[in-house]
Amino acid sequence: MATTYTLEVDGQRFTVDVVETGPERYRVTVNGRTLSVRLLPEGEVVPVAEAAQPETRAEAAERPAVAGAVTEVRAPIPGTIVSVEVQAGQVVKYGDTLLVLEAMKMKNLIRSPREGRIARVHVQPGQSVMHNDLLITFEG
């Protein structure tokens, strides 16, 4: 789950989204710019990777440095599961389609927030889900 902070530096406001991607590793989005950040033992924050060009597609910049702590995929909006594209044990890449959720008669692709192996699929086609219902868990 992303945590959002609003920081004020020298009178300028920044919206910061922090997602834990691994042990002491975070994906930090500051005003739309995404950085992968590793927390050093001294407590010093050092960027590990930064998007080379801010205008390149988000996926490349946002890919976590290691497969890590995002272990669940939950329903972003209520709807009906139309199809499940993965099964337990399958290895997926960042951005792979996991399942299709139909809401308000629109089919929405739920794509993988990380790479890793699927531990369990909690829903099946035809099932109605509420907001935040557990859809998929990853191993590790």
Binding site: A58, I77, G95, A103, M104, K105, M106, N108, L109, R111
Partner: peptide, 26 residues
């Protein structure tokens, strides 16, 4: 309706596939 809401959600997803604004758009 619901074309405009879908257009919005499609563009939002192009930018960030984990962003779901469909309900707001509807």
């Amino acid at each position: 309706f619901p074309m405009a809401a879908r257009v919005v959600q499609r563009m939002v997803q192009e930018e960030d596939f984990e962003n779901f604004l469909l309900m707001h758009a509807m």
